[in-house]
């Protein structure tokens, strides 16, 4: 609850504007889904697929950090956002491929199995949208002079 209120106080911040809110909300829901599911998996049947379920838990933590990072504006959180979203993208690609070619390693569904099939491929699409978003919202220090109105356009 505190986090949500904090989010709303920051509503004028540059990366927390317009359609970016949707990205944050969808990330939040995916983080909730991944965290809930991996908690159940680890509590009830960890021994069945330790690797897949550990990875599920790691993915959940990364989604939570990415959600928080997307709401922040400092250069440090910006880098954290890139790192976590990049990690997710690599994760969904690697685990997606592994689950197709070596189902024995991933006998059970995780967020990333079959490229996020169980989550209507949202885990595959979301990091791409996230990275596009981050690229467009990069801090002023790294933006060259040719895009002076990018921030203003997004304030709508």
């Amino acid at each position: 609850m505190g986090l949500i209120l904090e989010l709303m106080v920051q509503k004028s911040s540059s990366r927390f504007a317009g359609a970016g809110r949707l990205l944050i909300v969808v990330y939040g829901i995916l983080a909730l889904a991944a965290a809930g599911r991996s908690m159940v998996q680890i509590l009830t049947r960890f021994e069945v697929a330790p690797l897949a379920y550990s990875l599920s838990a790691l993915a959940a933590v990364v989604y939570i950090v990415a959600t928080i990072a997307l709401t922040r504006t400092s250069a440090r959180w910006y880098r954290i956002a890139w790192a976590t979203i990049g990690f997710e993208f690599v994760g969904v690609l690697v685990v997606g491929l592994l689950s197709v070619f070596d189902p024995v390693l991933f006998p059970s569904n995780t967020v990333w199995s079959y490229f996020g099939f169980g989550y209507v491929f949202i885990p595959l699409v979301l990091p791409v949208l996230g990275m596009l978003w981050l690229y467009r919202r990069r801090p002023a220090s790294t933006v060259s002079k040719q895009l002076p109105d990018a921030a203003a356009t997004e304030q709508r």
């Binding site: 949500i4 709303m8 509503k11 909730l32 809930g36 908690m39 159940v40 509590l43 009830t44």
Partner: peptide, 26 residues
Amino acid sequence: SVLEFFVYLVSAVLVPPLAALWALVE
């Protein structure tokens, strides 16, 4: 799994109030 069921249900119960709170503030 009853545990899995209630993890979903409790999570679901939290979603609309958070969205509505957001809508009321912004």
